[in-house]
Design a protein around this nucleic acid. Structure first.
Lengths: 249, 249
DNA sequence: GATATCTACTGACCCAGGTTAATCCCGCTC
DNA sequence: GAGCGGGATTAACCTGGGTCAGTAGATATC
């Protein structure tokens, strides 16, 4: 069941059994890639999309000097480049951040699915729009938060998304990324991310050691990053109870 | 013809005559709103989407202190909140920036259109994904460019989008926004935007006076902002010839 | 067990952009 | 034509985060 996490707990867009089975049948192949493997390049055409089963994948743009800005981080259950199905051409690069297991779905199969199952078009569209909502949150984070706020916001987001994926208990999760990755996510330097992590540690908000994040006080961390999970469109009414206590305040 | 600019020049997603007529028929009402009129609030449900006919509209998030970060600026021809059709709930606010003429399309009509015209689902989906691609460019801009670069990048983007809408000749366009708006777009303060505008003026790159932008050297301005229009998915092969000279370099 | 590599971590210094507080300018209203 | 209000503009000052130049620790390789 490679699609078991896809659209899980998403407001009004959960997959029906038949839809899930059809999508499973559409999977071309499944493979495990090592960390830092390129999956797609800006400007390239694509004829298939990638479903992330295990591990983490980034999407990023390079500036003129090769300095990287991540525009998205994907967690298991995400349909990483579903947007390439309508767009056809990529406007950014895609790369595994860790060892990752991915399932690929040919666009021809997606065409067929959209013809066969009328409800799927809306649900797949929905999935890409949640990514867009996350983009907006990232714009807010970069435009209006200071360094500590940015890191706090991102770690809060990662925590909620991983709870929904069943990969965080709400306080700790495995996250095989480096401080340098965090810098490329938050528009900072790795040196300053290190200062920020020390501060978060000293304020007893969270620690990030040997690829594991531990959040001591999710509500305070969320407040520090002005994080409100509404943009993730997770249906808290039926989602994992760990998401119930408001992280928004 | 309220939809005449919708998806104009977009790579492989242009509307056919019949599709355009059907969409025109779906328009519920058309009205002209004054500047700074709210169109939608974060958290609210919507049952219709707004097509921008004339003027400019912003989408924004407020931080805890009420400081605003714009996440999108819409130009005539944009389907401003089409994403609200699948998402149903807004994760941000929408407001006119200038006097604006808008046409609203009920979601029930969009449902009908998707049933009647099978090709439309893909094209509407495409339109929302171009917005997402623009979000990604904004993330890059905020994360990796300095103040002058951010403003140069945004003005280059605005220029190309307005050329495609037939509202810029490639060098000058009416843009009824303030330096404060520019600050809220670029994650800066209005004071610093003013310093940036002076610098752009002194470097003979562009001026912004009484609601008009004049770009003296689009290529140099684009280079200063590391702007590459690929993410706008404008089909340069058939678009307005003004877009032909590469702005990307 | 020596070496290389990667990531975490730190201090010293500096500058881009924020903050504060004015002034200026222009179009509006009465 | 005086007064007003919103935007543009500027100067003086300060600080958050970048830059540079390291050290330290943990793994992997031979």
């Amino acid at each position: 069941m490679f699609t078991k996490r896809l659209l899980r707990d998403k407001c009004g867009a959960r997959l029906e059994g038949s839809e899930r089975r059809r999508l499973e049948a559409a999977i071309g192949n499944v493979e495990t890639l090592s960390a830092r493997t390129s999956i797609g390049r800006a400007g390239s055409q694509t004829c298939k999309s990638t479903l992330l089963v295990e591990g983490f994948i980034s999407r990023y743009c390079d500036d003129r000097n090769g300095v990287r800005q991540l525009v998205a981080v994907h967690v298991p259950g995400d349909f990483v480049d579903l947007h390439a199905f309508p767009l056809k051409v990529l406007d950014h690069n895609i790369e595994t951040m860790t060892t990752a297991t991915v399932a690929t779905v040919p666009h021809s199969e997606l065409d067929a699915i959209m013809r066969e199952l009328p409800g799927m078009a809306r649900k797949l569209w929905f999935a890409t729009l949640v990514d867009a909502a996350i983009h907006r949150a990232w714009i807010f984070r970069l435009g209006r938060l200071d360094a500590v706020g940015r890191v706090a916001h991102f770690l809060s987001e990662a925590n909620v998304r991983l709870v929904s994926a069943g990969l965080s208990d709400g306080f700790r999760f495995a996250f095989g990324i480096t401080q340098n990755d965090l810098a490329e996510i938050c528009g900072l330097t790795n040196v300053h991310v290190n200062r920020v992590m020390r501060q978060l540690r000293e304020e007893k908000l969270c620690v990030f050691r040997s690829s594991r994040v531990e959040i001591f006080d999710p509500a305070r961390l969320a407040a520090r990053g002005q994080f409100d999970p509404a943009y993730l469109y997770i249906d808290t009414a039926s989602a994992d109870p760990i998401l119930q206590p408001s992280l928004c305040s």
